[in-house]
């Protein structure tokens, strides 16, 4: 990379700093920077899904039909109780095997099914997971786990919208659906945003678990870059530098937190437009 820079800049930097610059822009480091995309995709897509599952869960929790309420309550109770690491390990594996089982029922011969001892049940039923498939599963897993938290937050926020307003809207002749979307959901954001910002922070931090799903994310690359190396053949020779790379990850996550706070303040101000204030 440094060969792209003008000579005067390199001589101004001096040999040491030029070497540092060359080091932090070598292919291995560029791969590290590029792997940031997985963290960001997982965070944003995961958050969008979490919001979706959260809204659905919250709607179910206050549904008139009892079975829907059971599903909603079951979802928030069960999923919130499972550590996210476990869920991330369990869900994709269970999903993969369920799909493979379903394929096996369709493509394997009955003899193969009867005599199968290992997994998959026959070679044709093997589902090779691509990188994109793992990313999709990571996003869905994050969506499911944090959707359960979001559902609880949104459920509480929906309850916080004054009942009188809903009754008034009903009296004006709005349908149940209109009351829900235009009055209740429209106003619940003010109450939900502080809670949702907490959920977002948790989700953001959980993106450091992506490597559990064979995704080469920023943590994996930080590990690789920081690992001690004594072989010139492999690359720059250095001792255990993992702490340096972990420190960069610390700073990245703190920066993301600061930006998120700013973003949520803006959202809060926007959601509060035209709302009556008690003070």
């Amino acid at each position: 990379m440094t060969e792209l820079l003008p000579q005067w800049l390199l001589s101004w930097l001096g040999e040491d700093w030029s070497a540092v610059l060359a080091y932090i822009t070598n292919g291995k480091h560029l791969a590290w920077y590029a792997s940031l995309q997985y963290t960001l995709i997982a965070a944003f897509v995961g958050a969008a899904l979490a919001l979706l599952f959260g809204l659905m869960g919250a709607a179910m929790k206050q549904a008139r039909l009892a079975p829907l309420r059971w599903i909603g309550n079951g979802y928030t109770t069960l999923v919130r109780g499972v550590p996210d690491v476990l869920f991330l390990l369990f869900f994709p594996l269970a999903f993969e095997q369920a799909v493979e089982w379903a394929i096996a029922q369709a493509v394997c011969t009955p003899e193969q099914l009867a005599t199968a001892t290992g997994w998959p049940l026959c070679a044709d039923a093997q589902w090779y997971l691509s990188h994109a498939a793992y990313m999709t599963m990571a996003c869905v897993s994050f969506g499911l786990v944090y959707g359960a938290f979001a559902a609880n937050v949104i459920h509480g926020a929906l309850q916080a919208v004054p009942k009188g307003q809903l009754e008034a809207a009903q009296a004006f002749g709005l349908s149940q659906r209109q009351v829900f979307w235009r009055i209740q959901v429209r106003q619940m954001w003010v109450y939900a945003l502080p809670g949702l910002s907490n959920v977002w922070m948790l989700l953001l931090k959980a993106t450091s678990l992506l490597s559990l799903l064979q995704i080469e994310d920023i943590v994996v690359w930080a590990d690789r870059l920081g690992a001690p190396n004594y072989l010139a053949m492999v690359g720059a020779v250095h001792g255990d530098w993992r702490w340096k790379y972990y420190l960069v990850l610390f700073l990245f996550y703190i920066l993301m937190t600061l930006l998120s706070e700013k973003g949520f303040n803006w959202l809060q101000a926007r959601a509060s437009r035209g709302m009556a204030r008690a003070n």
Binding site: N26, G27, K28, H29, L30, A31, W32, W127, Y128, S130, R224, A227, N229, L231, M233, V234, G235, A236
Partner: peptide, 27 residues
């Protein structure tokens, strides 16, 4: 999409055991 790639041989390695297998400075 992946079914067509079934003839490919996939080789698994660790990528962290120099000089047997490792990730070089080019990533």
């Amino acid at each position: 999409g992946s079914a067509s790639a079934a003839d490919k041989i996939r080789l698994g390695t660790e990528g962290a055991y120099a000089p047997y297998n490792f990730v070089n400075d080019d990533g």
